[in-house]
Simulated assay, not measured.
Amino acid sequence: MHPEIHLALHHARAAELRDQAEAHRLAAKHQRDLRTRLGWTLVEVGLRLATPRPALAP
């Protein structure tokens, strides 16, 4: 294989890998955001369940 062809293939593959890495980073960030919101929601629900309700006055 000629060196120029090999270099062109290398550059093309490197560009594909960079695109895939960027897509993966964006997907991972979205999952972290969702996981964080869900976690805090569960903490809030747990605190509401653990807090005793005030007694009703007769």
Rank of each mutant, 00 (worst) to 15 (best):
residue 32 R to G: 03
residue 42 L to D: 08
residue 32 R to S: 11
residue 37 R to K: 11
residue 38 L to V: 08
residue 23 A to N: 14
residue 33 D to Y: 01
residue 40 W to C: 02
residue 27 A to H: 07
residue 10 H to N: 11
residue 12 A to P: 04
residue 48 R to P: 02
residue 21 A to F: 04
residue 35 R to M: 08
residue 25 R to G: 04
residue 21 A to T: 08
residue 33 D to G: 05
residue 27 A to T: 03
residue 14 A to V: 07
residue 36 T to V: 07
residue 15 A to L: 10
residue 12 A to E: 14
residue 39 G to A: 04
residue 41 T to M: 10
residue 29 K to H: 11
residue 9 L to P: 02
residue 39 G to Q: 06
residue 52 P to S: 07
residue 35 R to N: 12
residue 42 L to W: 02
residue 36 T to L: 14
residue 32 R to W: 08
residue 8 A to E: 15
residue 30 H to G: 12
residue 27 A to E: 14
residue 27 A to W: 00
residue 6 H to L: 13
residue 37 R to T: 07
residue 46 G to M: 10
residue 26 L to W: 02
residue 39 G to T: 03
residue 34 L to I: 05
residue 17 L to V: 11
residue 35 R to Y: 02
residue 44 E to Q: 08
residue 36 T to A: 15
residue 38 L to Q: 06
residue 40 W to N: 10
residue 27 A to R: 15
residue 25 R to P: 04
residue 36 T to C: 06
residue 13 R to V: 10
residue 11 H to T: 10
residue 49 L to R: 13
residue 13 R to Q: 14
residue 43 V to W: 00
residue 46 G to N: 09
residue 10 H to R: 14
residue 16 E to Q: 11
residue 9 L to T: 06
residue 6 H to F: 06
residue 43 V to P: 00
residue 15 A to P: 05
residue 28 A to Q: 14
residue 9 L to M: 11
residue 18 R to G: 10
residue 10 H to C: 11
residue 14 A to D: 07
residue 25 R to H: 12
residue 51 T to Y: 04
residue 52 P to E: 00
residue 29 K to Q: 14
residue 37 R to L: 08
residue 38 L to M: 10
residue 35 R to Q: 12
residue 21 A to E: 07
residue 49 L to W: 07
residue 50 A to D: 04
